[in-house]
Nucleic acid binder design. Structure first.
Length: 708
RNA sequence: GGAUUUGUAGCUCAGCUGGUUAGAGCGCACGAUUCACAUUCGUGAGGUCGAUGGUUCGAGUCCAUCCAAAUCCACCA
């Protein structure tokens, strides 16, 4: 063995050794009796987006899940970690369009099929990179069961669920205000809109007998009413009377609604249902018509001819000029208010009325809440349980259509004759239910990516090996960072229970984000990005993994510094050198049987270290069962470095031959304890130890978890 | 406006159901050196656990109030 541990020499070889021995692929017991005795342990990996290399956040979840997986595998449970990748709808299409733009092209240069094929190729290349990166991180997942969200069998499940939801009355098509991005050409869910404080001009306008204030004068042509608060005394005499829209001189009613804030602007609000969410709600309540003055490209329409075709901000300028010359502009002032921006392209979101597919959420979310209340789904962290329940409680109907190509096209077919919709689970229908016509056009929209990933746990297990679903479902643990609880975790609970009448997982293990060494959020613009693969190459996978669980408990965000990773690299080297010391006196050619059971001894320092070892085993086991990975890691670190190396090993130098059995025993148990955290260095040492062993295929990964 | 969380050593953070002199890593100071390891070893400095009250035999831990900070959600004409 060399003087220092050089991870670059061993890591990829060790991973190959595991993969070739099928160590990651569980064998589901065939007979009923065997199955009753076997204990399943299953984690479905949150499928990384197939559009970019892995970032440090992925590395954290890989570390966490791999630690748990290896621990349970060593405990003898039938352990499956199922890897996957996510087509990640809008995200991926956006990343891809950025690449197109670099080549001076756009999505409008291609037809639907071509664009889809191009993105698919791009995604497949990325997926390969991602898989190799997962290998570099040491992920002991079962590659033979890998699934992709656009695998045909997965897609079929998603289509079936949509059809079932439709048949059972959970799906409807409705007019709603959606967050439309004219640049991206699609709408976004509420969660995908960033609200930013913006300084804008607000214009006070004369509407005949009443004055209003607005930041969007270009939409006055879409006004259908003026509303005041019913308790606002200064306007009570005007309710029911008529206001007049400037320039076009259209008469609209003055109505009363509690949603109007009497202290804002003039206390009177122009109602524009097509371009504002609040106005839309008020419009529905008062049965007002909807007039839209902006088309899908964000150009003016349904307005006087001089504004036709202008962009909203151009139109605004011109309208304001005209209002001023015609004497309708009373005053303008600057205000700070929040405006929705597209989280992808950062452009202004245009609230827009459009027809979308919705899932009725109430019943589904109530059942999900009940599963959590009944502890059928357990959140070890109280705060994230509250977070998830709170989200479920406040969910609104779920808009699942997106106006993009990259995704699963919605199986909704519109009859060309009567324009009614027919829903299938994939194929074009034979005849229209309503008029018997046989020509259809399929909806161009695709599903929200979370609608398909929300079905991930059962869709994957039902499409891998026969028997997987029965044995592994409900899965044991779902692990994710807290930021995708609203998008993903709660959707999986709702759809999983809807489809299987069982929770999709028993435990939701939520972890925090990775931050830089000062606790600052990592972002490209701040330049504090930590590339996991760079760290692996520099310090080794084991060091990075330890760094990612070290120092902060799972719930909280973790501050990761290169110094910390370096310190863990030093720990790997410490373990390496302990082994070098222990193995130094072993004859190198003959067959050697290592001390694998607890040695009998009368020596006091022997007894002391054996006792400390037993306590450490007990403590680490308990901590791992409670998901307190940071404390477990620290316990192992401190035992190996302080108790074993600095204390016992130093003392043993005077009596090396006599102490040899204890040294061997403590080393082998230490390797087992450390293996889930630092799989590469521990396996490398194990292989070194068993070079001349009689047992074939003696892999640490397959060994058993220590008991005392 | 609603919800959640945090405040412990210079920095980043552990400390689970309350129980001796409050811990780790990094950093800092001093010292050691052909020893398995300089990716090392030894010694040490450094904290009235955000503040004030309360419960208790006993509070970093539980309760109340206050101060400071963070995150998420809603609204903004």
């Amino acid at each position: 063995m060399e003087k220092a541990y050089d991870h670059t020499k061993y890591e990829s070889k060790i991973y190959q050794l595991w993969e070739l021995s099928n160590a990651f692929s569980p064998i589901v017991p065939k007979s009923k009796n065997e199955r009753l005795l076997a204990k399943p342990f299953c984690i479905i990996m949150p499928p990384p987006n197939a559009n970019d290399p892995l970032h440090i956040g992925h590395a954290r979840f890989v570390a966490i899940e791999d630690i748990l997986i290896r621990y349970h595998r060593m405990k003898g449970e039938v352990t499956l970690w199922l890897p996957g990748s996510d087509h990640a709808g809008i995200e991926t299409q956006f990343v891809f369009e950025k690449k197109l733009k670099e080549q001076g092209k756009s999505r409008f240069d291609f037809d639907r099929d071509t664009l889809y094929k191009m993105i698919m190729e791009y995604v497949q290349t990325n997926t390969k990179t991602m898989h190799n990166q997962l290998r570099q991180l040491g992920a002991s997942c079962d590659w033979s069961r890998h699934k992709f969200t656009l695998d045909p069998d997965i897609v079929q499940f998603v289509l079936n669920t949509f059809k079932k939801l439709y048949d059972e009355g959970y799906i409807y098509r409705g007019k709603r205000i959606v967050n439309y991005c004219p640049y991206c050409g699609t709408n976004f869910s509420e969660l995908e809109v960033d609200y930013k404080e913006t300084e804008d001009e607000i214009y006070y306008l004369n509407y005949g007998i009443i004055n209003i204030a607005t930041t969007r004068p270009e939409t006055i042509f879409a006004d259908v009413a003026v509303a005041v608060n019913p308790n606002d005394k200064k306007y009570s005499s005007l309710i029911g009377k008529i206001a007049v829209i400037p320039i076009i001189k259209r008469e609209v009613p003055i109505i009363a609604d509690v949603l109007v804030d009497p202290n804002f602007g003039t206390g009177a609000l122009k109602i524009t249902p097509a371009h504002s969410a609040t106005d839309f709600d008020i419009g529905i309540k008062h049965k007002l018509p909807i007039i839209s003055v902006l088309d899908d490209q964000g150009n003016m329409t349904n307005c006087p001819v001089e504004y036709l075709g202008l962009k909203a901000n151009q139109a605004r300028k011109k309208v304001v000029e005209d209002l001023e010359t015609q004497g309708y502009l009373i005053k303008k002032e600057l205000i700070n208010h929040t405006v929705g921006h597209c989280y992808r392209c950062k452009g202004t979101i245009e609230p827009k009325v459009s027809e979308q597919w919705f899932v009725k959420i109430k019943e589904l979310s109530q059942k999900a809440i009940k599963l959590i209340k009944d502890k059928e789904i357990v959140f070890p962290s109280r705060k994230y349980e509250k977070f998830a329940k709170n989200w479920l409680k406040n969910l609104r109907d779920w808009n699942i259509s997106r106006q993009i190509v990259w995704g699963i096209q919605i199986p909704a077919f519109r009859c060309q004759k009567c324009l009614e919709w027919t829903i299938t689970n994939g194929g074009t229908p034979q005849n229209c239910h309503f008029c018997k016509h046989d020509k259809f056009i399929q909806d161009q929209d695709t599903f929200d990516t979370w609608f398909s990933s929300g079905q991930w746990p059962y869709a994957t297990l039902k499409t891998t090996n026969p028997g997987d679903f029965d044995f592994f479902y409900p899965t044991t643990i779902m692990n994710s960072s807290y930021d995708i609880i609203p998008f993903w975790i709660i959707r999986m609970i709702m759809l999983g229970f809807y489809e299987t009448q069982k929770p999709p997982f028993k435990v939701v293990l939520v972890h925090g984000l990775v931050r830089d060494k000062h606790g600052i959020k990592i972002s490209k613009s701040k330049g504090n990005v930590i590339d996991p693969i760079e760290m692996v190459e520099k310090y080794g996978s084991d060091a990075l993994r330890m760094g990612l669980v070290w120092g902060a408990n799972l719930d909280n965000d973790i501050s990761l510094s290169e110094e910390n990773i370096k310190g863990q690299r030093n720990f790997c080297n410490k373990l390496w050198n302990i082994s070098r010391f222990v193995l130094a006196t072993i004859p190198s050619k003959s067959i050697y049987k290592f001390q694998s059971s607890k040695p009998k001894t009368k020596n006091n320092s022997d007894k002391e270290i054996l006792k400390k070892l037993a306590n450490t085993v007990k403590k680490v086991t308990k901590l791992l069962d409670k998901y307190r990975l940071n404390e477990a890691a620290e316990t192992i670190y401190s035992f190996i470095w302080k108790d074993f190396a600095n204390d016992y090993l130093e003392k043993s130098k005077l009596r090396k031959v006599e102490a040899q059995p204890v040294l061997e025993y403590v080393l082998s148990i230490s390797l087992k304890l450390a293996h889930p955290f630092m799989p590469f260095v521990t396996e490398t040492i194990w292989q070194e130890m068993h070079k001349h062993s009689l047992e074939k295929n003696n892999l640490l990964i397959n060994s058993s978890w220590p008991k005392d």
